[in-house]
Design a protein around this nucleic acid. Structure first.
Lengths: 178, 178
DNA sequence: ATCTCCATGTAATGTGTTACATGATTAA
DNA sequence: TTAATCATGTAACACATTACATGGAGAT
């Protein structure tokens, strides 16, 4: 149930609407936690019912009203409890690896094509992360300490993608006809 | 729904019982696809209903009977179709990174402790994978081609864990008091 | 006695995905 | 006029987790 904790972390940083949160899940935390807007809205409802967050409505012209959610004292206490708890290592369910593992039932070319397609996606992912990293590097030295921890998570993403790409290149070399 | 495909791949390799499959998910494919025995039994039931697999009962002495499942012609066709299809890149939902990202609300020591705990788990994971790799290296050269594709998936696991550990060491260095 | 391994499953609950639904604004 | 962005949600379905349930064999 870490989607709730992800939401609490984001809202503790900055009160936001559901829509804004769903945008943040496409960047920032989104590099290690994915959530659709449907999930976000239902979890915001639950968190509100449980008193961990509350909201104020903000009128807007020409656009639907926003509900700006923020973490309550109770929510902050809950977040701190979670931050001090043991969490289960994440499990990886990677269908591409299942495909490669069972690749003997089709030609190498079929697997190769799909690995290449994924390679492109990961390459683009890496580029995005590196762009964010350079923003961090260009930050004033006074501001850097604030982003120290998020930067460590960004580094995980970068290293992860680099490692993935190195592996993919090996696979591509192995499966390519001579 | 790649659990079904994982099961088909494993059963295409070797007809097995639900219990045996659940053991395989603790090693082999288990390094990139996790499934509990409850999931496995329900999916085996569904796959049987859909005619993609069937089973024969094997009597055993002193132990409950085994249902040995095997892939049908229809199942094999379905597997090949899947192997030739585009699959969505896997999403990572990593609660430890959420924790680090939001770590400013607790002390560095709290986060450090949890990172160290995970480091140990990943270290052990890597050792297991390296042990399997050395089995592969010691294989007769005639047998190696058979394990070519599974070996590529093993390599992903090894590289992934190595990259994870390198990152964890950086995090530990960053969070450790001087 | 207690625990782990073998071997199978159901039931309840929790989480995630896909599809459906609405409606205004702005840019191509 | 088509698509994208802003903004919110519900409903149906698929998938995963936890708890419950049984029962013998063998080891400590």
């Amino acid at each position: 149930m870490s989607l709730q904790h992800s939401l609490l972390v984001l809202l503790a940083e900055q009160p936001s609407s559901g829509y804004e949160l769903s945008q943040k899940f496409k960047s920032g935390v989104g590099y290690f936690w994915k959530a659709s807007h449907q999930q976000i809205y239902t979890q915001l409802k639950k968190l509100t019912e449980d008193g961990l967050i509350d909201f104020e409505e903000e009128q807007q012209e020409g656009k639907p009203d926003k509900k700006i959610y923020k973490v309550t004292a109770q929510g902050m206490a809950g977040l701190k409890t979670w931050l001090s708890s043991e969490i289960k290592p994440s499990k990886t369910n990677d269908a591409l690896l299942v495909m490669i593992y069972g690749g003997r039932y089709v030609g190498d070319d079929v697997i190769l094509k799909e690995v290449r397609r994924h390679r492109d996606i990961h390459q683009k992912g890496l580029e995005k992360l590196l762009a964010i990293e350079s923003l961090y590097f260009n930050l004033d030295d006074e501001l850097k300490p604030q982003y120290r921890l998020p930067y460590l998570t960004l580094k995980r993403g970068i290293r992860g993608e680099q490692s993935w790409l190195e592996w993919a290149d090996e696979v591509i070399a192995e499966l390519s006809p001579q």
